[in-house]
Amino acid sequence: MNKILETSKLSAGYGALRVLHEIDFLISEGERIAIVGLNGHGKTTLFRALTHLVGWQQGSIILNEKEIGGRRALGAGRKTPSIIHAGISMAPQGDAIFPGLTVEQHLDCGAYTKDSWKNRSSKKEQIYEIFPPLETLKKSLVGKLSGGERRMVSIGRMLMEEASLYLVDEPSLGLAPKISENVIKALLKVEIKNSAMIIAEQNVSILKGNVDRMVGMHAGRLRGDVGHIALG
């Protein structure tokens, strides 16, 4: 099994606030990992550090044997497109999408390499298979969809690219329970052969038993197991 992503001593934060504390983390080909933890403990910051969107960061991030980490973020977002092109595909938290584009155009935006741009119609068919409701909404503006549909579009856009690492940030945030369950089930059905997937989630019960590993995140540090006092 090849290593997809290896971080060593990854720290990141915003100004005086240090959010991540020297994270050592490894994910290999074919793995599907869940990172669970409460709000404000650094799940999103970890993803944003991987894509160079935090205030500052330090430590090495090796993606497919290529160093994408940096001592200090070169202005948030400056290196992001090149990191994305190196093989990370991310569905950000909430609905960070383009409200004025149609679902189809939105999915097209996800295909950023030449190959995937050429094969985008077949790719889109696959996305519609994963999320059937999108097929009928093809031509409608994303800004007018419901929250669940928008999340599907956001995740669909992420899946348009043959990336080596998929990052999904809080797929169930703010959705009704039925819909969030559907979204996560669809996400778990996605085949990952040569790639890996990390899902950051608060809702542990949906993911339990369906992912390869479950990693807890507390106060900016990763913990191998998730400690819970049994309920009831």
């Binding site: 720290s11 934060g13 100004g15 005086a16 606030l17 240090r18 959010v19 504390h21 205030g55 500052w56 330090q58 200090r72 106060a219 900016g220 540090r221």
Partner: peptide, 25 residues
């Protein structure tokens, strides 16, 4: 900003800021 970042890098307290370190707050 630079000094604050440098200091927050060496701090080991989880998610905590010392008042005299955060000169930009």
């Amino acid at each position: 900003r630079f000094q604050t970042q440098k200091r927050s890098l060496i701090t080991t307290k989880g998610g905590e800021i010392m008042p005299e370190e955060a000169i930009d707050i």
